[in-house]
Design a protein around this nucleic acid. Structure first.
Length: 372
DNA sequence: CATACGTGGCA
DNA sequence: TTGCCAAGTAT
C-alpha cells in the first residue's frame, strides 16, 4: 500500500497554486527575512544552504555575520578555512560550510564567478541538491522549478490526505514531478516556492494543530475536510540513536587551555574540541592518560555531567578541570596534537561545536574567586 | 534505499 | 524531561 501519491487526487494540485500566489504577498511582510531584502543569486544561495534543516530564526544572525565577512563569491572562494568554520560555529551540519566554499571555487574556476543557471550544472555543485537548485533557480532567475522541501511535502500530503511516506525519495520525486508542469516562469516561481515555506512555517505547522481557519488552501484540503490534519504527513519512525560516553578534559596550563582538532572526516569534522577519552574515566585513569603524553596534573576537579543529543548519536559527558604542573613540557606527539590557547583566542578564532559548550563556562573558573 | 550529518525550539 | 523535527545533501 502507501503509494507515492493517490493519483485519483493529483488533479487537486493545480488548484492550490492560485490561492498560494494570491496569499503570499498579502502576508509576506509579516516575516522579515534578510535574504528577501536584498536578493541576488549569492544571497539566495547562502540563505538556502543555511536554511537546510535549520529554522529561519536560527539562521538570521549567522546569515548577516557571514555576509559581512564574506560579501561575495570571490571572497568566499578566497576565505581562510579557520574563518569559514568560525562563521559556521553553532549552526550545525558543518559540511555545508565546506561545500559552500568548494562550490565557490568551482564557480570562480569554471563559471566566470557566477552561479550557473543551467539546472544540472547548478545541481552538480557541492551542497546543492534538487531542493536548493529549485529554490535558487526560481527565486534568483524565475526558473519554473519547484523546491520540494519538508514544507511542500507536509502541505501536499495534507491537501491530498496522502499516506505516502514523506521520508522516502520516491515520494519527493512524485511530488516534484506532479508540481513541475504546473509551475510558472518569472517572479511567480520564486513567490510560489516562498509561499509554500511561509505557509508551512506559519499556518500548516509541522507539530501541534495547524491554523486551518487562516489557510488559503483550507477549502480544498482533504485532510481538513476529514478533520484529520494531524494524521498527515506520515513519516517512518526514526531509528533509536546510539549512546556514547566520553570524559572531557579542560587542561589548564597558565592562562591557556588545550584544544584538539577533530579528524577531517565524520562527526564535527575538523572542528576543535577539548581533549577527551572514551568512557567515564576516574581520576586515576585520567592521570595515567596524561602521563602517556608527559603531562602531570596538579589538581583534578570534577565538573557537572552533561548530555548532548545529535540526530543519530547521544553523548554522555563527564568533565574535569585539570591544572597541569607548572613547568610542563609541551609534547609534540602527533597522536595528540594539542593547541594551547587562551579563552579569548578560543572565542575569537576556534570553531568549537555546541557539544562542548557545556564546559566553556569553566574555562574562566581559575582560582581567582571572581568578583561577580 | 538507508544512513551520516548538528542544533535548538516546542509540545 | 523526553521526543519530534526544520527551507536536505552526500555517500
Amino acid at each position: 500500500m502507501n503509494q507515492t501519491l493517490p493519483l485519483s487526487h493529483t488533479d487537486i494540485l493545480p488548484d492550490i497554486l492560485p490561492p498560494l500566489l494570491q496569499w503570499y504577498p498579502a502576508q509576506a511582510d509579516n516575516r522579515q527575512l534578510p535574504w528577501r531584502e536584498s536578493p541576488n543569486p549569492y544571497h539566495t544561495w547562502l540563505s538556502e544552504i543555511m536554511l537546510q534543516q535549520t529554522r529561519a530564526s536560527a539562521v538570521i544572525p549567522y546569515y548577516e555575520r557571514f555576509l559581512d565577512a564574506l560579501p561575495d563569491i570571490p571572497a568566499l572562494a578566497a576565505a581562510d578555512e579557520t574563518l569559514l568554520m568560525k562563521l559556521w560555529q553553532g549552526l550545525g551540519y558543518y559540511s555545508r560550510a565546506r561545500n559552500l566554499q568548494k562550490a565557490a571555487r568551482i564557480i570562480m574556476d569554471r563559471h566566470h564567478g557566477k552561479l550557473p543557471q543551467d539546472q544540472s550544472a547548478l545541481q552538480n555543485l557541492p551542497g546543492i541538491g534538487p531542493y536548493t537548485a529549485g529554490a535558487i533557480g526560481a527565486i534568483a532567475w524565475g526558473k519554473p522549478w519547484p523546491a520540494v522541501d519538508g514544507n511542500v511535502l507536509r502541505i501536499v500530503s495534507r491537501v491530498l490526505a496522502s499516506s505516502a511516506d514523506i521520508a522516502s525519495a520516491r515520494t519527493r520525486r512524485a511530488v516534484t514531478d506532479a508540481l513541475s508542469p504546473l509551475y510558472p516562469s518569472g517572479s511567480s516561481a520564486g513567490a510560489l516556492n516562498q509561499a509554500f515555506m511561509d505557509l508551512g512555517a506559519t499556518i500548516c505547522l509541522p507539530h501541534g494543530a495547524p491554523h486551518c481557519p487562516r489557510c488559503p488552501l483550507a477549502a480544498l484540503c482533504l485532510a481538513h475536510e476529514a478533520g484529520r490534519e494531524q494524521d498527515f504527513p506520515v513519516k517512518k519512525a526514526a531509528r533509536p540513536r546510539r549512546v556514547e560516553q566520553y570524559t572531557v578534559l579542560l587542561l589548564r596550563q597558565g592562562n591557556t587551555y588545550a584544544l584538539h582538532q577533530r579528524p577531517k572526516k565524520g562527526l564535527l569534522a575538523g572542528l576543535w574540541e577539548f581533549p577527551n577519552l572514551p568512557g567515564k574515566a576516574a581520576s586515576q585513569q585520567i592521570r595515567k592518560y596524561l602521563r602517556q603524553y608527559g603531562l602531570t596534573a596538579d589538581s583534578l576537579v570534577p565538573l557537572p555531567e552533561a548530555r548532548h543529543i545529535f540526530s543519530h548519536v547521544e553523548w554522555k559527558l563527564s568533565g574535569w578541570l585539570i591544572c597541569l604542573a607548572a613547568p610542563c613540557c609541551i609534547v609534540a606527539d602527533s597522536s595528540l596534537p594539542l593547541r594551547w590557547v587562551t579563552p579569548q583566542e578560543i572565542a575569537k578564532t576556534y570553531s568549537v561545536p555546541a557539544a562542548f559548550s557545556h564546559y566553556l563556562p569553566y574555562l574562566y573558573h581559575p582560582t581567582t574567586k571572581s568578583m561577580k
